[in-house]
Amino acid sequence: MAYIDYYKILGIERSATQDDVKKAYKKLARKYHPDLNPNDPDAHRKFQEINEAHEVLGDPEKRKKYDQYGENWKHADEFEAQRQQYRSYQDGQEGYTYWTESSDGSGFSDFFEQLFGGMGGKKSQRSRYVFRGEDYTTELQVSLADAAKTHKQIITVNGRNLRITIPAGIANGQTIKLKGQGGPGVNNGPAGDLYITFVIPEDARFKRAGDDLYVTVPLDLYKAILGGEQIVDTLDGKVKLQIKPGTQNNTKVRLKGKGFPVYKEEGKFGDLIVTYSIDIPTNLTDKQKELFREIQSITQ
């Protein structure tokens, strides 16, 4: 366990007055306080150091003990051996400093706990109350094709990677809650929740309305007039459709159960509505034009 130079942490001389300590603490706290540095673990850690330094140097009694024994803190152990809460340091982790994680940035190092008997430091009366942690919100982009199937995806929240299972049928703008995955609580309060809002960008082929999908299929003029077969894309593959002779432009065909899966209702699907868009041929050859004129004259 390494010796911690609290004076160095606060950037002050050993001869600094109590007022200097307070000023230095406030200045650094304003820079590194977790409230002013959300989602920044480095600032959080730095603030813990500053807080601990202030806890010691800002208290004349502790400062005296620190000044007396700080550099050779093991001697302080001997001095304090009779203390009821004394616990000997025997883990042999020389060279390491351990900080107790605390949501409000007030965790204390093993060095501090050893020197001051695990008091945990004095807290202001105002901050003793328990509060639930902050709720986090995030957005997750999912393609329409991915949203149509139950799948796993990794998201990073506050430096932590979570693999979530996204059920098939999730909607654009839908928000789900992961309980307890938000910010840590204050003074051992419960953690907040994580809210994930799904963003499903427009798909180039399919339009979605609820659980129904819409697709526009270009149909050549000859097939529309004479009938035939047409291959149509669906979310789970291609289907072959029979085209009736004389099919009109914008004719709609409903394919039952070929739409989007219904959220959390396994085996249930919306419909796929196919709209035929008939392509009128352009750049006809002279021969083709002649044939069309012939059809026209016969028809008239």
Binding site: K152, N161, I164
Partner: peptide, 10 residues
């Protein structure tokens, strides 16, 4: 691909 925690329930 990266290391991740499992989180299947919501």
């Amino acid at each position: 691909s990266d290391r991740f925690d499992e989180m299947d329930e919501f």
